[in-house]
Simulated assay, not measured.
Amino acid sequence: MRRGTRYGALLGPLLAGGATPALVTRAARGLGLPERGRYAVVVLGTPVPDAAVAEGPDADGSRWWWGEAESREVAVVLLGPAGPARAAARLRELGAGPGGVSPEVGSLAEVGAARRLAGTALLTCEPGSREIVRLDERLPAALLVSRPELSTRLLAEVFGPLLTLVPAERSLLVETLETWLECGGSVGRAAARLGCHRNTVFNRLRRLERLTARSLSRPRELVDLVLALDVLRLSSAPP
């Protein structure tokens, strides 16, 4: 992992996007990187840990170059065999985060687009979290954060009546829905995890259906609820 003014000056035009072929070639030579290769970009929401900028390749052979773009810590990663998943795991090991990791791209000329996708992945991290997430793991949420005006509308349309409840009551229903989803739609498993009777879970879910005018048994309406839950999760306000 490398960092320095020289590296940053070479990375800047690449990360900004739209670099000319001549600039890409010059950056590749200056950084000692192939123009064609398996790359990903990382964008962090907090300062990069010192351990992340140590010289030399990682154990899996990946090589990192750190710079800055739009006031964020950004790394271009020449990937090892394990791909972006290993890059995300490495950042978690180092205690970095929150952060977003782009999908793999095939050349240095594409790292500007990859940087934008990594930045979108970062926006899907919960406020105050230390998550490191790959865009491909968060595509529905990424669509939502890419269109905040539609996300706000979705939340109001689906959860409007729910949001008028007192916070404790609202949190209870949201937690029950989240747990039910995590348990694969099993009321029994959700009840065990929540420490209550299965009828209690059933009654909470039925109340949530009445408040939102959407049924958990209708796939399209369930999609509405799941997406609205993602918007709520990503908002700065607690449920």
Rank of each mutant, 00 (worst) to 15 (best):
G8L: 08
G8Q: 13
A9D: 10
G12M: 07
G12S: 14
P13T: 05
L15R: 06
A16E: 11
A19V: 11
A19Q: 12
V24C: 11
V24A: 13
T25F: 02
R26M: 12
A27W: 00
A27E: 05
A28D: 12
A28I: 03
L31I: 08
G32F: 02
G32V: 10
R36M: 06
R36L: 08
G37R: 02
R38S: 12
V48Y: 00
D50E: 14
A52L: 09
A54M: 09
E55W: 00
P57V: 08
D58M: 10
G61N: 05
R63F: 02
W65I: 06
W66N: 11
G67T: 06
S71I: 03
V77Y: 00
L78P: 11
L79E: 07
L79F: 00
P81G: 05
P81E: 07
P81F: 00
G83M: 02
G83H: 01
A88N: 11
A89Q: 06
R90I: 07
R92V: 04
L94R: 02
L94P: 04
G97V: 07
G99E: 05
V101T: 06
S102Q: 11
S102T: 08
V105L: 10
G106Y: 01
G106C: 09
L108K: 04
E110Q: 13
V111D: 11
A113K: 10
R116V: 09
A118T: 03
T124S: 06
C125N: 09
S129N: 13
S129W: 04
I132D: 03
R134G: 14
L135K: 05
E137K: 03
P148G: 15
E149M: 12
S151W: 01
L154A: 13
A156K: 13
A156I: 08
E157W: 03
V158D: 10
F159M: 14
L162H: 09
L163W: 04
L163E: 15
L163R: 15
V166M: 12
V166G: 15
A168S: 15
A168R: 14
E169C: 13
R170A: 07
S171E: 14
L172G: 15
L177C: 05
L177D: 04
E178L: 02
L181T: 02
S186I: 01
A190I: 03
A192Q: 11
A192T: 04
R193H: 04
G195E: 08
G195W: 01
C196W: 00
R198M: 11
R204G: 08
R204M: 08
R204V: 08
R207Q: 12
R207C: 14
L208C: 07
T212C: 14
A213R: 09
R214E: 05
R214N: 09
R218S: 15
P219M: 08
E221F: 04
V223R: 10
V223N: 08
L225T: 04
L225D: 04
R233A: 11
L234C: 14
A237D: 14
P238D: 11
P239Q: 09
